[in-house]
Amino acid sequence: MDLKLADPKGLIRESYRIEGIGGIECRSIFLDWALSLAPSTDQTEAMRTVLSSYGGDASHPMSEVLAEGLASAEAPPARRGGRAGRVSV
Rank of each mutant, 00 (worst) to 15 (best):
M1Y: 05
L3G: 02
D7R: 05
D7M: 08
D7F: 10
P8T: 06
R13A: 15
R13C: 05
E14S: 09
E14Y: 04
E14N: 07
Y16R: 00
Y16S: 00
Y16A: 00
I18F: 00
I18G: 00
E19K: 06
G20H: 01
G20V: 01
G22N: 15
G23N: 12
I24S: 12
I24V: 15
E25H: 08
E25Q: 15
C26F: 06
C26K: 01
R27E: 07
S28E: 13
I29E: 01
I29Q: 00
F30T: 03
F30Y: 15
W33M: 05
A34D: 06
A34G: 04
L35W: 06
S36G: 11
L37P: 10
L37E: 09
A38D: 12
P39D: 15
S40H: 08
S40K: 09
T41M: 13
T41L: 10
D42P: 02
Q43Y: 04
T44H: 13
T44V: 05
T44G: 14
T44I: 04
E45S: 12
M47Q: 14
T49K: 10
T49F: 02
S52Y: 03
S52E: 13
S53F: 09
Y54Q: 01
D57H: 03
A58G: 03
A58P: 06
A58S: 10
S59R: 12
S59Q: 15
P61K: 08
M62N: 03
M62A: 02
S63Y: 10
S63R: 14
S63I: 07
V65A: 13
L66K: 04
L66I: 13
A67L: 14
E68Q: 11
E68I: 13
E68D: 14
G69E: 12
L70N: 02
L70P: 03
L70D: 02
A71F: 05
E74F: 13
A75H: 11
P77S: 12
R79W: 07
R80G: 11
R80W: 07
G81E: 11
G81D: 08
G82P: 13
R83V: 07
A84H: 04
A84V: 08
A84M: 13
S88Q: 12
